[in-house]
């Protein structure tokens, strides 16, 4: 390839060099969501890391939004927080303009559009959105940084996402388990609430053992028709 630059060989004159700057960083952390017939669980740990350092043990990455939806963000914390700020503004704006609350499906589409709007300088965030549809049944939308979206019954993302996902596929989706008894284990993709809570806690305590970027505290949001509640579970702080 032709180049307009001068000689590149070592010599007495140094070519001035910019210090490399990356606008991106990975702050680790794991998020998970399980949707049931009348609930959605959206959970995430609260550790924020950078490299081998723990920045803080409490920096929430799961956010309750004003329209009874919960958004879990993972990846770059600064991008995640700013994305959530934008979404909250849009949700409020929508409320004023249309005199109604934004539906979860509308928010799911909005998020995809917002993410794709920054296709050429993406938010470095892996989102998981939980909400109840018009019938009151739970759904999870999961995204990549540029807005690809999929509607699912369970999802997980982040630094221990690859550790937890197959566990959820097996326990909730009953993947590759033709012998499973639907009477005791329930239908695939439809777990009782208590069981889903147990899976959530087990998934995070296990992930904390193997993933250095997951730990300190687990925040579990539960969406029901009556509203959103939060529960905090301590994780290992090592």
């Amino acid at each position: 390839m032709l180049s307009a630059a001068g000689p590149t060989h070592a010599g007495p004159v140094r070519i001035p060099m910019e210090h490399g700057f990356s606008p991106y960083t990975d702050n680790g952390g794991t998020t998970l969501a399980i949707a049931g017939d009348d609930y959605v669980i959206v959970a995430g740990d609260t550790r924020q890391s950078e490299g081998y350092s723990i920045n803080t043990r409490y920096c929430p990455k799961v956010f309750k939004l004003d329209n009874n939806c919960v958004l879990a963000t993972g990846g770059m914390a600064a991008d995640g927080q700013n994305l959530v700020r934008r979404l909250k503004q849009s949700i409020e704006q929508y409320h004023h303009v249309h005199a109604k609350t934004m539906s979860p499906s509308a928010l799911a589409q909005l998020l995809s559009v917002v993410l794709y709007g920054k296709r050429h300088f993406p938010y470095f965030v892996w989102n998981t959105l939980g909400g109840l549809d018009a019938d009151g049944s739970g759904w999870v939308y999961s995204y990549d940084p540029v807005g690809n979206v999929e509607k699912r019954k369970w999802a997980c993302a982040g630094s221990a996402g690859h550790l937890i996902m197959p566990f959820l596929d097996a326990k909730i989706g009953h993947h590759h388990q033709s012998q499973i008894d639907a009477k005791t284990e329930g239908k695939p993709g439809s777990v009782p609430f208590d069981t889903a809570m147990k899976y959530t806690k087990d998934a995070f305590t296990s992930a904390t053992e193997r993933d250095i970027y997951t730990g300190d505290l687990l925040e579990i949001f539960v969406i029901r028709k009556s509203g959103v509640t939060v529960e905090q579970i301590p994780l290992k702080r090592d």
């Binding site: 991106y24 960083t25 924020q48 950078e50 350092s53 920045n55 920096c59 770059m76 600064a78 700013n82």
Partner: peptide
């Protein structure tokens, strides 16, 4: 804490640079 990438956090102990 705030840095050049816009990363922010609160904590009961904070150290920058080599101090981290």
């Amino acid at each position: 804490f705030v840095d050049l990438q816009g990363t922010t956090y609160e904590a009961s102990t904070i150290a920058t640079g080599f101090g981290a």
